[in-house]
Design a protein around this nucleic acid. Structure first.
Lengths: 121, 121, 121, 121
DNA sequence: GTGGTCTAGACCACT
DNA sequence: GTGGTCTAGACCACA
């Protein structure tokens, strides 16, 4: 578990939690069947409420990235590398549709967007 | 004034207003010195609160895109095409830094990002 | 709003809330655009926590039965009678698959199930 | 003993155990006087806790489907085919009352329920 | 010990 | 006033 929480961010804490673990799973950093820390322990370590952790975990479960077994813990779902790549692109695309609609509202072309993107990377 | 407000969007209404007018100005659609409609009129037409319109106008003024003449109204600032292009890129870049940090958290490369971006456009 | 909460039930409160409002919407008792009571008011009236109401509302929104507008309230989505009927059957079928797997584990036939069902109705 | 345990199910494990053995007894698959495996052995084979098995066995005994002879083991009670059929229907009916109350909350008729039931079977 | 749920009260952004 | 979020502490069922 390597999570960074920012209180000053405009993103809700549970969202930050969700995104970071989601990214780690889809990067393959947390192997299949990996056991996530107990929500209470995670809450204490990250200095957030149990409910906040739970909300992030629930979203992960809804996406099929983890599964929880009552009384035992939460575990990373077993996904093939292909599944993971596809799910990763799905998530990024979904966000990209929103992001680009903003860029496009300024009348920017795809090529110009590429140019700016290169600067940022 | 050609504005589309969406209640179902997760963006606040004043932000939607701000972004759309901002884009129109920087695309050159609203010429120098163009007079924005009075706040009350805009609020009525768009069926939003006066406060909401005020907030959007204030943000535009803060960026130097419009200026207010008390008792007369709000007008589009006089910007050269170069100024507009630069300001446009500034605004897009600023947002792009945030957007790409999300993409990068998944370990995606610049090339892969290009690929996905093409799909979206 | 005509909701009955039971603390002794084995179902979580937010689930009871969700199911009852869901049923009322799909029965057409709450017309399109009907404004749900503010979560705080609902919480007070039903003597439950804000968070509990919120959780039920979230589930309703996830199913597309209501939509929330920050600062304004929550409203019943606009669904055609056909949409409602289909969604109703979807929900019942989903539960029925679980229920019948239990019946079938006893080796009961469809006809015998009908007989018992008649008794219950 | 032919039992399938699912961790991903929302039903507690002891409940799954209970239901499956119960069904097997009432289907007549486990004859009168059949000796259930010792708790420890069952726990090992099914990879569950002894406590979990114990809980399931207790529930079976409470219903009079098995009886324990201290120091010897647990045995399937002697029931006539009629007793078994009646007990089976009792158990199914009890669950059906709960299940149908959910269906009925959507305003569905008995006939419509039949239709959906046919699809599921 | 684990997850599942709930409460009461709080602060913030938006309209 | 509305929804959105968060905390701290609590009780329960399950393994």
């Amino acid at each position: 578990m390597n999570i960074a929480i920012s209180n000053s961010s405009d993103k809700p804490i549970y969202q930050q939690l969700f995104e970071q673990i989601c990214a780690q799973i889809l990067k393959g950093e947390l192997g299949n069947g990996y056991s996530l820390p107990p929500i209470r322990q995670a809450a204490t370590e990250l200095r957030v409420s149990i409910i906040t952790v739970k909300k992030a975990w629930e979203e992960l479960e809804r996406l099929g990235l983890i599964y929880t077994v009552t009384g035992k813990g939460c575990f990373v779902a077993e996904l093939s590398p292909d599944d993971m790549l596809q799910k990763r692109n799905e998530m990024i695309l979904k966000q990209m549709v929103i992001d680009t609609s903003y860029y496009k509202s300024f009348g920017i072309t795809l090529e110009e967007t590429f140019e700016l993107l290169k600067e940022v990377y």
